[in-house]
């Protein structure tokens, strides 16, 4: 009737010699006792179990009580906020007003948050002249100030590598150099988001919180990111930064000119990255790191404009991209004079 392997269930090795003293042994097939298992008299043990469960729950409530501070940081509106691409203009207006209000409350600064959209037909690219860069780090500092970075860790989207002449192997590099620059036997290579055309960070994001916009900039919706840091693991350029804690910025240092997808103060627990200062560049202005560069090593422009400086570099200089073998197709180029 049953396949033999099913019958195996019958011969259980799990049967114990000793009967469980409290266990229900529904051996009395009594008609009155319809629920011999559920209708047991409330034993002392059951009561104790209930007390234990209640104590356990209370202890659990106490254990997670630090979460009570969260409602200050996470409003219901923020919790229910939709993905950036699904927001209507009215939604955005409301959300930006709320974020401005929150910045005022938390940082004491009056800021304006705007929604900068790509300029039609423009595609941004960046180039750095490694013959000129002398590793002075002004770009890092400008980024730090422009983009409302966490003051505590001197956060910046740029890292400048000091490499010995004769190699491009980053293994030989150093970012913590702290001496007069440039050293005779060294050259310097700033690395920031390469705004890849095939961005691994966008591919891996499980919630589409990061994406590539039409002008080539890879952006993050800080209010949609769940903080899994998969993009940080995927990025080959160390371009992504995580907000390990709520950023601290003195009120007078907060840059009030803010973009929703760019330099507004990021929430704790979310990912951020270089966005080519889109709140500036989408208004036609130059990125902060370029303006700060005292050596003029930085070149920025529109790839779709044949007369742009960036196209001049591509056509007249010998350029290379970092880690080309990974197929990320950066919009960020390096060249030597």
């Amino acid at each position: 009737m049953f396949p033999p392997y099913l019958r195996a269930h019958r011969t259980s090795f799990m049967n114990n010699h000793a009967e469980n003293p409290d266990g229900p042994t529904p051996s009395s097939g009594n008609d009155q006792d319809l629920l011999p298992i559920l209708n047991q008299p409330t034993t002392r043990r059951t009561a104790l179990k209930a007390v234990g469960a209640a104590l356990g729950l209370a202890a659990f409530g106490k254990a997670i009580s630090p979460l009570a501070s969260i409602p200050e940081n996470v409003s219901v509106d923020e919790f229910l906020q939709q993905h950036y691409k699904e927001l209507s203009d009215d939604d955005k207006e409301r959300i930006f007003a709320r974020l401005e209000q929150e910045t005022k409350e938390s940082y004491g600064a009056d800021v304006t948050i705007s929604d900068h959209r790509p300029i039609p037909g423009v595609r941004f690219a960046y180039a750095i002249n490694l013959s000129k860069c002398n590793g002075n780090g002004k770009c890092m500092e400008a980024c730090h100030l422009e983009n409302n970075h966490h003051r505590g860790v001197d956060q910046s989207y740029i890292r400048v590598l000091e490499l010995p002449k004769g190699t491009l192997d980053m293994e030989e590099g150093n970012t913590t150099f702290d001496h007069t620059v440039p050293q005779e036997d060294k050259f310097y290579m700033p690395v920031q988001c390469q705004q890849c055309d095939n961005p691994p960070c966008v591919t891996v994001c499980p919630v589409e919180a990061t994406w590539k916009e039409d002008d080539g900039i890879v952006v993050v919706d800080y209010n949609w990111c769940i903080g899994c840091r998969y993009c940080e693991a995927a990025c080959p350029y160390h371009a992504r930064r995580f907000n390990w804690e709520q950023p601290e910025i003195p009120a007078e240092e907060v840059n009030p000119d803010q973009g929703y997808l760019s330099n507004r103060v990021r929430p704790q627990g979310t990912m951020e990255k270089c966005h080519f200062c889109l709140h500036r560049t989408r208004e036609g202005r130059l990125p902060a790191c370029l303006e700060a560069c005292p050596t003029g090593a930085r070149v920025f422009g529109d790839l779709n404009d044949p007369d742009s400086p960036i196209n001049y570099v591509l056509q007249n200089k010998r350029v290379f991209v970092l880690k080309e073998e990974l197929g990320t197709r950066p919009s960020f180029f390096y060249f030597f004079d």
């Binding site: 969260i70 996470v74 919790f79 993905h83 499980p206 919630v207 589409e208 919180a209 949609w224 990111c225 769940i226 903080g227 899994c228 840091r229 995580f242 907000n243 929430p267 704790q268 627990g269 979310t270 990912m271």
Partner: peptide
């Protein structure tokens, strides 16, 4: 491991992305 565990609903197909 999530930085924003309360946003886990963004992972639910249909509601999130």
């Amino acid at each position: 491991d999530l930085g924003r565990p309360e946003r886990f609903w963004h992972l639910i197909p249909g509601i999130g992305r």
